[in-house]
Simulated scan of single mutants.
Amino acid sequence: MTALYDQSVPFLIRGLESLSKVLKKAEAQADERKWDKDVILNLRLAPDMLRLISQVQLASDFGKGAGARLSGTTNPSMKDEEKTFEDLQARIGKTIDFLKTLKKEDFDPARTVTIKLSGKDTDFDPVTYFNAVAVPQFYFHATTAYNILRSNGFALGKLDFMGRG
C-alpha cells in the first residue's frame, strides 16, 4: 500500500534524522562546555524515567519495529549496548538504513499487525497500528530525549526538534 509507506517510512526517517541532529548539537555543546558526556547520556527527566541513552534506543526500536510490522519484514535485532554519542549515532544510522530497504509494495493494507499489549496479543489494521501505537511511542521517546537535553541547559529549540535547526 503505497499511501501507508509514504505516510510512515519518510516520517520515521525524518524523525530519526532530526533526533540525530539534536544529539550532534548537544554533543558539540558538551564539548564546548567541557561537560562529562557520560553524565549527559545518563540524564533523565525524573528518577522513575529512563535515561537519555534508553530514550534514543527506544525511538530507534519503535521506528524500525513500525517499519518491519507494516511491511511484513523481520525486525532487525539491535542490542542495547550504546554507551557514547557515537554509538547512538550509529544505531540511528542503522535504523535509517533498515527503513530505506523497505519496499512500497510490501505495505499490504490487509495485513494484520499483532503486538503484545498488557501481556496479550492484540491485532490492529496497519493504519490504526501506525497512528495509535507506533507514532505515539516513537514521538514519546524522541521528544523525551529532546526534553532531557533541553531541561539540562542545552541550547535547543523547536526547529532543532523538527530537524531544521
Score class of each variant (00 low, 15 high):
84 T>W: 11
165 G>L: 01
94 K>G: 11
41 L>I: 03
112 T>M: 13
40 I>M: 03
66 A>H: 03
88 L>M: 08
164 R>K: 15
151 S>E: 12
6 D>N: 15
69 R>A: 06
77 S>G: 09
27 E>V: 00
46 A>H: 12
121 D>Y: 00
89 Q>L: 12
50 L>Q: 10
65 G>M: 02
128 T>S: 15
78 M>G: 09
45 L>D: 05
127 V>I: 08
144 T>S: 15
60 S>M: 04
22 V>P: 00
45 L>K: 06
125 D>T: 08
69 R>S: 02
8 S>T: 12
69 R>G: 02
105 E>C: 05
14 R>M: 10
86 E>K: 12
98 F>L: 14
75 N>P: 07
123 D>H: 06
43 L>S: 06
58 L>W: 02
161 F>C: 13
73 T>N: 14
73 T>F: 00
165 G>S: 08
4 L>F: 03
82 E>L: 05
99 L>T: 01
133 V>N: 09
150 R>Y: 09
93 G>T: 07
105 E>Q: 13
50 L>D: 03
5 Y>I: 02
118 S>V: 00
14 R>C: 06
63 G>K: 02
75 N>D: 13
28 A>T: 07
150 R>T: 04
76 P>R: 09
106 D>G: 06
52 L>V: 01
151 S>K: 14
96 I>P: 06
27 E>P: 05
101 T>C: 13
67 G>F: 02
48 D>M: 07
141 H>D: 11
75 N>C: 11
86 E>L: 02
93 G>V: 03
51 R>Y: 06
136 P>I: 01
43 L>E: 00
30 A>Q: 09
118 S>I: 01
8 S>N: 06
143 T>C: 11
38 D>R: 12
156 L>G: 07
59 A>T: 07
77 S>C: 02
25 K>M: 04
126 P>K: 09
125 D>Q: 11
49 M>P: 03
129 Y>W: 09
64 K>C: 07
98 F>K: 15
9 V>M: 05
140 F>Q: 09
20 S>K: 14
67 G>P: 06
20 S>E: 12
10 P>K: 09
29 Q>E: 15
162 M>N: 14
128 T>M: 12
